[in-house]
């Protein structure tokens, strides 16, 4: 295994850690807002790390570009849907 591969696998595991943290947060936190907080933040970072690790493993420019695009749009979508869920929860008084 090359040092690059070891680095990539390390990054992948770090990303996995953030996903686990986000999931635990969603299951354990008490209300909609803090659950959203856990999910959107941790998962976005987790996805970034996994995309980075995969990009290092493939070492292909076009794949790396696609991965970056995927990450960008997921972040955009999760920010918007997070906002919509929070707004709905706030208005309908289901926040807590």
């Amino acid at each position: 295994m090359t040092p690059l591969e070891i680095l990539a696998i390390g990054i992948l595991f770090a990303g996995l850690g953030f996903f686990v943290a986000g999931t635990v947060g969603m299951l354990r936190f008490p209300d909609v807002f803090s659950r959203l907080h856990a999910l959107t933040k941790a998962d976005n970072l987790g996805l970034a790390l996994i995309a980075l690790g995969t990009a290092l493993l493939t070492a292909d420019t076009s794949v790396t570009l696609k991965l970056m695009l995927i990450w960008f749009f997921v972040v955009l979508a999760s920010a918007t849907s997070g906002h919509l869920i929070a707004r709905h929860a706030l208005r309908s008084g289901q926040g807590s």
């Binding site: 749009f73 955009l76 979508a77 920010a79 918007t80 906002h83 919509l84 707004r87 709905h88």
Partner: peptide
């Protein structure tokens, strides 16, 4: 329901893509 300005901005960014 109406979805508000953030969704509008998101849509404007994402729809062309």
């Amino acid at each position: 329901p109406r979805l508000g300005s953030i969704f509008f901005g998101f849509a404007r960014l994402v729809l062309p893509v």
